[in-house]
């Protein structure tokens, strides 16, 4: 038991939480942005899969991780824009559009891998793992000074470039939402689209922009998956992270920092599961931990929210009575 505890409380464990949190955090921020504009993008999962694939392929073709990263971002945006055309132009229920993109993300990507690379190693083995070498992975960064601090150094320093970007983007997303005119438009469109359109804010354009941004975020998340988290793309590698991001968005009340905290909880759950299986637990028991935590998280969040609302109403009522 003490063995378990000590290995859990190691710096390496906390390091892994941050690493595991990063890809989900990208997707979560994507969810936060579109939800502010009043859209539920459940296609984040599929976008991550598709951009993870193209990221790793482009990195291979160009022999440059940077080109791969760029490609993943662009593909993410393109897919999100295609979704937008269906959702906003052809008035398709956004949830159904998301389901379709997820179908392409799971099965369609294998088709693409096979037909693009002419690999014929059988269905289950289809992946681009053989193509990605460690030079093509997104580089890690040792932060000077901080890396030498005991305990904290090994936890915070030495992550992938994208990990730092993910946490930086939490702040930038907040600035975007609350300090820029795009953010103002976005929130207006989410809250009262008629009000926005009546003053000439193009609701459609704002929604397209929000979707594109969420695609960009999911693209970054996908790139992280295939070019940092793992070596190359493989079947079902995103494994529900896009959906977990939706849950994190809800639990964070749709605010960037709140959603980040929720994401870290999921990161912890997954790191914990991995830790458990590394010390002998059947991986089929540890793997579902993040999914179970997601459900529990949503339930706890719903109960807390309900209590908070009831309390607020009660408090207001009490105040009213007092004033009389």
């Amino acid at each position: 038991m003490s063995n378990v505890l000590s290995s859990i409380l190691s710096a390496e464990f906390f390091f892994s939480i941050i690493r595991i949190t990063s890809p989900i955090l990208f997707a979560t921020l994507g969810a936060v942005i579109v939800e502010k504009a009043g859209i539920s993008n459940i296609g984040l999962e599929g976008i991550m899969m598709i951009s993870a694939l193209f990221g790793s392929l482009c990195a291979y073709w160009s022999s440059s991780w940077f080109v791969g990263l760029l490609a993943a971002m662009i593909v993410g945006v393109i897919v999100a824009l295609i979704m937008s055309v269906f959702a906003f132009q052809l008035k398709t229920d956004i949830i159904l559009v998301g389901i379709a993109i997820n179908m392409i993300g799971s099965g369609g990507t294998i088709f693409l891998v096979k037909s693009i690379t002419n690999m014929t190693e059988g269905e289950a083995l289809s992946s681009t793992t053989s193509l990605i070498t460690s030079e093509l992975q997104i580089p890690t960064v040792q932060i000077p000074l901080i890396q030498n601090i005991p305990v904290i150094g090994p936890i915070i320093s030495g992550h992938s470039l994208l990990t730092y970007l993910a946490f930086l983007l939490v702040f930038l997303t907040w600035v975007l939402l609350y300090k820029t005119s795009l953010g103002l438009n976005l929130r207006s469109v989410g809250e009262n689209p008629n009000a926005a359109s009546s003053v000439g804010v193009s609701v459609t354009r704002v929604r397209y922009t929000a979707m594109a941004l969420s695609g960009l975020m999911a693209g970054l998340g996908g790139a992280f998956m295939s070019m940092s988290y793992a070596m190359g793309w493989s079947l079902n590698m995103v494994a529900g992270r896009g959906f977990i991001a939706l849950a994190a968005q809800a639990m964070g009340s749709g605010e960037p920092f709140g959603a980040m905290l929720a994401t870290i909880v999921f990161g912890f759950a997954q790191a914990f599961g991995i830790k458990l299986s590394s010390i002998g637990l059947d991986s089929n028991l540890s793997s579902p931990i993040p999914y179970i935590i997601t459900i529990i998280g949503l339930v706890v969040f719903a109960i807390v929210k309900r209590k908070r609302d009831a309390k607020r109403v009660a408090a207001v009522g009490a105040k009213q009575r007092k004033e009389k």
Partner: peptide, 20 residues
């Protein structure tokens, strides 16, 4: 590759669901 079916399915699905 047989997984073409997933893409065909998704496209049909999208157009059937597209109200406009």
């Amino acid at each position: 590759p047989a997984q073409l079916i997933d893409i065909i399915q998704a496209v049909i699905f999208l157009f059937f669901a597209a109200e406009q």
